[in-house]
Design a protein around this nucleic acid. Structure first.
Lengths: 147, 147
DNA sequence: GCAGTTGTTTTGATGTAATCAAAACAACTG
DNA sequence: CAGTTGTTTTGATTACATCAAAACAACTGC
């Protein structure tokens, strides 16, 4: 038996992305348990470090960059806070960020994909992507402010 | 005569924003000549420094922050490059950024304001703003890539 | 006009987030 | 199992921005 059942799908995804299967990469990918989770490099490192004591934060940056380049992770770079990574990819969803605590929620645009991806004037640009970010206050930060 | 005609409107905007009128602030505001221009703190400093030799980059950061807080400038923080500032405010326009050279163009959403400001699920957030950023390649970067 | 108060700018240090280069190392090929 | 190639580690370095305190200038009332 050549594959560890617990890592079966994670390993398979690395292989089909043309990446070598290494312990840091398995650990980083497995640090994203559920889909709607958004972790900073720091947070990923905190989750990975206990199992891999020899890992450094720089290594995590390298692994994350490789996974983003291969399309296994998506990088989000909100204004004013550290970059976050998420496993939910391939669908055009957007983000709702709390200005109080930087919490991030996934949202789908109410009108679907097309309109937000079509500016009125492209200025000759070849369009590649569109980011939509909503800013506001999450329920607990609203409560904290109301006190 | 108490006001310099060349600075009349700039000065007036500072006053009505409740800010003291100082040389650095006049110079920074006047560094934005036409509306659709997007300058980084560095670029503002480069435009301001010749006329105000005693100004430092930190001072420019301070002035820019004050102007943004007063609503006289808008701050844009694109992923992967330094923050930019623009004078066009009060309308809900978006930005088109070149991944090759970081050039920024203004765009208006084809469907107007409302739809892009309305996510399907607010997760209980109190919404404050929505940013839309389009990513692509500007004409000259397309040409450079085609060579 | 002039002095006091308040807000602003300057100066210098500090911090965070992230990248880079080179050496040590491990995964996949035959 | 050995060689090659790609990855990780280590350490230094960068870019961008913020903070604190002292020096300073703008606006108020006199």
């Amino acid at each position: 038996m050549t594959t560890d059942a617990a890592h079966e799908s994670t390993e398979g995804r690395l292989r089909s992305a043309g990446l070598k299967v290494t312990a840091p990469r398995l650990a980083v990918l497995d640090a994203f348990p559920a889909d709607p989770i958004h972790l900073s490099a720091d947070e990923v490192y905190a989750r990975v470090a206990p199992a891999l004591p020899s890992t450094s934060l720089q290594a995590v940056y390298g692994v994350l960059a490789a996974l983003v380049a291969s399309g296994l992770l998506r990088k989000i770079e909100p204004a004013g806070s550290a970059a976050r990574y998420e496993k939910r990819i391939g669908d055009n969803h957007h983000h709702l960020i709390c200005r109080g605590c930087n919490a991030i929620e996934d949202v789908d645009c109410v009108i679907g994909e097309a309109p937000c991806l079509t500016p009125s004037d492209t200025h000759g640009f070849r369009l590649q992507a569109a980011d939509v970010t909503f800013w506001g206050l999450c329920p607990s930060c609203q409560a904290a402010l109301a006190e």
